[in-house]
């Protein structure tokens, strides 16, 4: 044991254990593979303990540990997803595209019944634990490859250029996939949270 001041946050087996559930949930959602997620969280905890003396206490332990986990996840995705073909994205997107098309009239403007309505004050939702449960369920409901691209962009915060390079997909394909994912998520949240009338396609 080193003799840090007892008040500063420390990286200990106990603080890591307390973060384990969050880490596992996050890694599983990103990787869609519970065993790989389990291994990765284990590795991350070991790395964090080994590097505990590098933790400067400027960020919270959670932020610091999740940075390690995030980098591990990005490495794993690069290794595993590079070989997914462009046609795999198109194939799994077909039903989402069909559902999206039904929102519009023949002239490609919104149908009156499906025109997006205001979500009131959606910031309130971000404070609500139940919202995050719905949010995670909607994310989990996206097709695997589509979800991976979306989460690389929005949760892991890679640029679309990095994603194209890492996954060997074209920029225009990347834009199509992200549009598809965003709209599916929008429809899912609309149906299951903001109007909560359920939604036929999610």
């Amino acid at each position: 044991m080193t003799s840090d001041s007892p008040s500063s946050p420390r990286v200990t087996p106990e603080t890591l254990a307390a973060l384990r559930t969050d880490m596992l949930r996050f890694a599983t959602l990103q990787l869609r593979d519970p065993h790989l997620a389990e291994d990765m969280v284990q590795d991350t905890m070991l790395t964090a303990l080994n590097k505990a003396d590098q933790f400067a206490g400027r960020a919270s332990v959670k932020t610091w540990v999740f940075t390690i986990l995030r980098n591990n996840i990005i490495d794993a995705i690069k290794l595993r997803a590079r070989t997914v073909s462009a046609s795999a994205y198109t194939a799994e997107g077909e039903s989402l595209d069909a559902a999206f098309d039904t929102l519009f009239k023949d002239n490609a403007h919104w149908s009156p019944a499906t025109r997006p309505v205001a979500w009131g004050d959606p910031e309130d939702a971000l404070q609500d634990q139940q919202f995050w449960t719905v949010f995670e369920a909607c994310m989990a409901h996206l097709p695997t490859n589509t979800a991976r691209v979306f989460m690389m962009r929005e949760v892991l915060e890679l640029s679309s250029r990095e994603i194209c390079e890492d996954l060997s997909i074209s920029m225009s394909n990347c834009h199509v996939i992200l549009h598809r994912a965003r709209n599916a998520l929008r429809t899912c949240l609309q149906g299951n949270w903001f109007t909560a009338s359920g939604c036929a396609t999610c």
């Binding site: 919104w110 979500w119 965003r182």
Partner: peptide, 22 residues
């Protein structure tokens, strides 16, 4: 309709960015 859609896209981004730190 598209104005609402636009606001919802912005909200999705904030939600995703807040997902880790909530």
């Amino acid at each position: 309709g598209c104005t609402n859609f636009s606001a919802q896209m912005d909200f999705l981004r904030r939600a995703c960015r807040g997902y880790l730190t909530r």
